[in-house]
Simulated scan of single mutants.
Amino acid sequence: MKILKTIFTLLLVSIFTISCSSDDGTDGINGVDGKQGPTGTANVIYSAWLTAPTAAAEIVDGTSGMSTTINAPELTDDILSKGTVLVYVSFGSGTFSLPYTSTAGGFVNTITAVSSLKKIKLFRFRHDQAATVNLPTSLSWRYILIPGGVAAATSKTAKTDYSKMSYEEVCVHFNIQQ
């Protein structure tokens, strides 16, 4: 009986030694969650601050305005159909997301962005359609491209609307240097 007890004890010790190691963590049920790591940029693409070419008068969808185009070589059909394109303008009083409405030139006007494959058209129009307000080359532009991920219908969490976040919030969220 003593031999049987010794063999049984050795067997139990062997089983525990083989099945457990110092590399094993907690089982995930009773363990403590680790602290949240910093948000990364994942597949997010962002440009440097850009200067756009001189704007020219143009009619877009029946609206007269001034337009210019910046190149966005990373802007693909996949991002256009499934992702998010954010465009920002920066000048003396701050950084603003497009569309941006102001009273520059004494008239209410809006600067908007129209995205297409590898390009982003910047378009400024007056709300009263009486004339146009220039789109000066002194403005700085930046785009942020967020590729699509899981379709909203299959996602367990609501899709984040980055267009409702400020430029600073987007940069913090994706760890982008401002």
Rank of each mutant, 00 (worst) to 15 (best):
N43E: 10
I120D: 06
T51H: 11
S90N: 08
V89D: 00
S47G: 05
G92N: 15
F125V: 04
I7H: 01
A151Y: 13
V114H: 13
Y143Q: 03
R142Q: 14
T68P: 02
D23Q: 14
K82P: 05
A151H: 11
M165V: 00
T160Y: 01
T103F: 10
G37H: 02
A56Y: 01
G37L: 08
S116Y: 07
T101N: 00
T39Y: 11
A55W: 06
I79A: 00
A104L: 12
H127A: 12
G65A: 04
L11E: 07
A56W: 00
G92Q: 11
K2E: 12
K5L: 14
F16G: 07
I15G: 06
T63S: 05
T154D: 15
I29N: 12
A52D: 07
K2P: 08
G31V: 04
N30T: 13
S102N: 12
F174W: 07
I29L: 11
L75M: 04
C20I: 13
A113E: 09
Y88I: 05
Q36H: 11
S19H: 10
T157R: 12
S155L: 07
A52K: 04
I59L: 07
I70P: 01
L80D: 04
A48V: 13
F16E: 03
I176L: 10
I79E: 01
T76P: 09
I120A: 01
K82S: 15
Y162P: 02
I3F: 11
K2L: 11
L12P: 01
M1K: 10
I15W: 12
V13C: 11
P53Q: 13
S102K: 03
F125H: 14
F107H: 08
S67G: 09
G105M: 02
A113W: 02
A42M: 10
T103L: 06
A151Q: 12
W49L: 00
K82L: 09
G40W: 00
Y162Q: 01
V44Y: 04
I7F: 06
T103M: 08
D77P: 00
L122S: 03
V114L: 15
W49G: 03
D128T: 02
S67T: 05
N109W: 02
A152I: 14
T101F: 02
L11Y: 12
I3S: 10
A151M: 10
T110Q: 09
F174K: 07
G94F: 01
A131E: 10
S14P: 03
F125T: 08
D33L: 10
I59E: 13
V44K: 04
K164I: 05
I176S: 04
I70Y: 01
I79S: 00
V85S: 03
T41H: 12
F123N: 02
D23H: 13
E74G: 04
P38D: 07
T63E: 07
G25F: 08
A158V: 14
L98K: 03
N134C: 02
V150P: 06
P147C: 09
I70G: 01
A104V: 06
P73T: 12
F107E: 00
F8E: 03
D27K: 05
L86E: 00
I7M: 07
Q178T: 06
A57G: 12
T157E: 12
S81E: 14
T54F: 00
S163V: 02
